[in-house]
Simulated scan of single mutants.
Amino acid sequence: MTNIYFNRWFSSAYHYINMIRDNPDGQRFTFYGTHPDPGHLALQACDYSEQEPVLHGEEYVEYALDFCRRNEIGVFIPRLKMLEIAKEARRFDEIGTKVMVCRDIPLLECLMEKDRFYESLAGSGVVPLPEYEIAETAEQFKAAYEKLAARGHRVCFKPTNAEGGMGFRIIDNERSEQDKLNDLYGWVSAAISFEEAYGTLSSVERFPRLMVMELLPDEEVSIDCLADADGNLLAAIPRRKSSGRIYLLEDKPELLEIASRVAARCRIPFVYNIQVKYNNGVPKLLEINPRMSGGLYITCLSGVNMPYLAVKAILGQPFEPPVPQFGIRASYLELPVLMKPV
């Protein structure tokens, strides 16, 4: 039996733990989890859990090493502090813990900073990139906005190192006072006028780097990818967001070709996610996440149990490359869960 450890994951890890547990081979695993919130949903799927201290840098790595040593962890699937852990992966090897992480540190550092990753792909032909500029002063922001707007683009911006939709804003200069009032009574809007954004950014001399980009207004697609330990692509499944909570798992050659080119260039092992968004029929890169995505459990309705196959890959257990089912229309419902005592 192998002990598997998930540290401070999203609540979707609840699904991934159970997908590994309910594997078709009948392999037995014991699951360990840590999180600062002892009642976090991801921990409810674990056999053993521990409240994680709030630590940074080397202190966090030492905590994770000690946890793996104390609990004889065979496979560690990190999300928090992935880069710091990857840099010390050999120390985990020494205690018999296999870490499911990309060990190409320069690549991983680039993936964490979107502007650096875009620069590394510029002119490579791997995947089309949106037009963008980098700003860390209000005047740079103004110049970037004006440059992109002059090219006919709607403009948005986002921190270079944000995860998911954190910090994403769309510049909309047509917003009325009524629109702003409606924001107080309805859903929070990502829209902001240039003057509002510029005024806020002007309040400081310098701010964390922003990517000021062309807005990609059309459909968004996540391509969930499974690779072996050497980064050889085994399966790629595009998941397109449709209306509401509806997703479509589609066999689209242009997206599968992007996945193949990314795999050949980056050699990311195990499970990762490529996010693209369309503009005028062209899929352009948003970001690549070198981990299981939040919506992977929907992609796995294709018949490909990516979390379990990734575990098999890191354990060196052979398996045939999976053949996904496409043409699937899928959604999700809230799942009631009886919580364990804290």
Rank of each mutant, 00 (worst) to 15 (best):
residue 187 W to R: 00
residue 145 Y to E: 06
residue 339 M to D: 10
residue 235 A to K: 03
residue 199 G to E: 08
residue 163 E to F: 14
residue 81 K to Y: 11
residue 33 G to A: 14
residue 128 P to K: 03
residue 160 T to Q: 11
residue 100 M to R: 03
residue 323 V to R: 15
residue 61 V to P: 04
residue 138 A to M: 09
residue 59 E to C: 02
residue 281 G to E: 10
residue 15 H to I: 02
residue 161 N to I: 03
residue 75 V to C: 05
residue 234 L to Y: 08
residue 261 R to T: 11
residue 265 R to T: 12
residue 129 L to H: 00
residue 258 I to F: 11
residue 299 T to D: 09
residue 150 A to R: 15
residue 45 A to N: 07
residue 79 R to D: 06
residue 265 R to N: 05
residue 98 K to M: 12
residue 213 M to I: 07
residue 282 V to F: 07
residue 66 D to Y: 02
residue 124 S to W: 03
residue 260 S to Q: 15
residue 241 K to F: 11
residue 188 V to F: 00
residue 40 H to C: 08
residue 15 H to Y: 13
residue 46 C to P: 01
residue 140 Q to N: 05
residue 185 Y to T: 00
residue 192 I to N: 02
residue 110 C to W: 10
residue 162 A to V: 13
residue 83 L to F: 05
residue 50 E to I: 13
residue 13 A to S: 15
residue 316 G to Q: 11
residue 69 R to M: 08
residue 80 L to W: 11
residue 114 K to C: 01
residue 235 A to L: 10
residue 78 P to A: 03
residue 174 E to G: 15
residue 90 R to P: 08
residue 61 V to F: 02
residue 271 V to Y: 01
residue 99 V to T: 14
residue 55 L to E: 11
residue 63 Y to V: 05
residue 217 P to E: 14
residue 193 S to V: 10
residue 23 N to M: 07
residue 68 C to Y: 04
residue 290 P to A: 14
residue 179 D to H: 13
residue 158 K to M: 07
residue 254 E to D: 13
residue 315 L to A: 04
residue 6 F to C: 01
residue 42 A to E: 14
residue 255 L to C: 07
residue 311 V to L: 09
residue 142 K to I: 11
residue 186 G to N: 02
residue 331 S to H: 13
residue 57 G to P: 15
residue 83 L to Y: 04
